[in-house]
Design a protein around this nucleic acid. Structure first.
Lengths: 227, 227
DNA sequence: CGGGATATTGACTCTTATCAATGCCCGTGG
DNA sequence: CCACGGGCATTGATAAGAGTCAATATCCCG
């Protein structure tokens, strides 16, 4: 459940996607291969659902949320992406979800064209991207199980463990996102999320230093709970 | 929501994956490129979670369900695959979900090795598989929205429309799977699924010729409902 | 130090789950 | 050909979990 994530780092991609040392990079035509650094403020939109999608992104710092909206405003966040991870892969030329900065974010944007069309890149390269996409698919399938079959407490436990694993596994966890975002990721309301935090605290499994700073006191029991 | 599906057909793959005319094919070592036809009875296991995964599959006939289980038996079906679709893509060498035949199924199995390692295949080929995987990711993300944010009636409406679209769009829909499978796909209980069928009937949007044979009377309203 | 956004807590409602009884359909065998 | 039996589906009564609405409380940030 909630494995390291979607678009996690892969050695090859790190090499291939990193900006050449000394590069300055504005959004110039030349940026095709190297990638263009971009910054986004808190809650700024990186791309929108329905927008034409020409780029894939790698998170340099901050946290990104990818989400879909129903016409009446109900929202489902499908993933949070943290430093080192990539997102924005799309089958067609249109974005099927939107991406926003949860906190101030730096990313590098790569022309998708350049990624797939480059006939000079080793076949390994496309294969590497395929692998990232398959990992993303796996994470999403795990999340289906969470949304379809786990109760509120199990969902929150799984979420905290996933976040923790992805941030290095230290027992103190700093959450970048507000309760509302956690709720929209876990398919709950923010009130329920808050109550589940309280219950995990009651159960002695976590300690809340503040709303965003969580101490994972008993990971073993959290794991048993998150499934 | 619930787009044509996961691993839907793509012209290139049809060419590349089809068995050479006149081929007989047992599970021989030579079958690497051509693919091995296989048959499975109702509810037979095609592969299991945790099993080592050496093949990808293309459905020739029947319907396949891909699912994950929680230790206590709760189940989430992540997708149904129908004729022409492919499934079984895995990031690592282990299957992360299991696949079973909903009804008697014929598939063709292709060695994954052969698919990725073949340096003689055009780069286009890997790219085609990447595209199928991205489509699968999209379908799964749509399903996240369904599980996280839609109510029971909306879920069933979306399900019926998706199935209908994938089976050619005729107003009479033959469901291959029992209520229990629909429930595990939609994150509901079979009783609730049954009640929602009754309610769609009440609303005049469907007619039940039998439990498995559904007439879609008002697709427009179903669409509005399914979101 | 004050104020707005974010989070918690409480009371109550509503949707869906659970438990249980009955009905229906279809294939098999008398 | 009909009756029986077993799996599947429907329907009902009740319970439980999460949602909703509303009133504080807390935390930043200026």
């Amino acid at each position: 459940m909630l494995t390291p994530s979607a678009v996690t780092q892969a050695p090859h991609l790190h090499r291939l996607f990193n900006i050449p040392p000394g590069r300055k990079a504005e959004a110039s035509e030349h940026a095709t291969q190297a990638g263009v650094p971009m910054s986004f403020g808190r809650n700024a939109e990186i791309y929108a659902e329905g927008e034409t999608s020409g780029y894939v992104y790698k998170v340099v710092s901050g946290v990104v949320r990818v989400s879909k909206l129903l016409p009446d405003g109900r929202r489902q966040i499908s993933a949070f992406h943290m430093s080192g991870e990539m997102f924005g892969f799309e089958a067609n030329e249109l974005h099927h979800a939107s991406a926003e900065a949860v906190v101030p974010v730096k990313v590098i944007a790569f022309k998708w064209e350049g990624v797939l069309t480059m006939d000079r890149q080793p076949v390994n390269f496309v294969r590497e991207i395929l692998n990232l996409t398959m990992l993303g698919l796996r994470h999403t399938q795990d999340h289906l199980l969470l949304l379809g079959r786990k109760n509120a407490l199990e969902r929150l436990a799984a979420f905290l463990l996933d976040m923790n694993a992805r941030m290095g596994g230290t027992p103190v966890l700093d959450l970048a996102m507000p309760r509302h975002d956690i709720a929209d990721y876990l398919g709950l309301t923010l009130e329920t999320v808050s109550r589940m935090f309280a219950e995990l605290k009651e159960l002695g499994m976590i300690r809340l230093e503040s709303a965003r700073r969580v101490h994972l006191i008993d990971k073993a029991r959290l794991k048993a709970m998150g499934a």
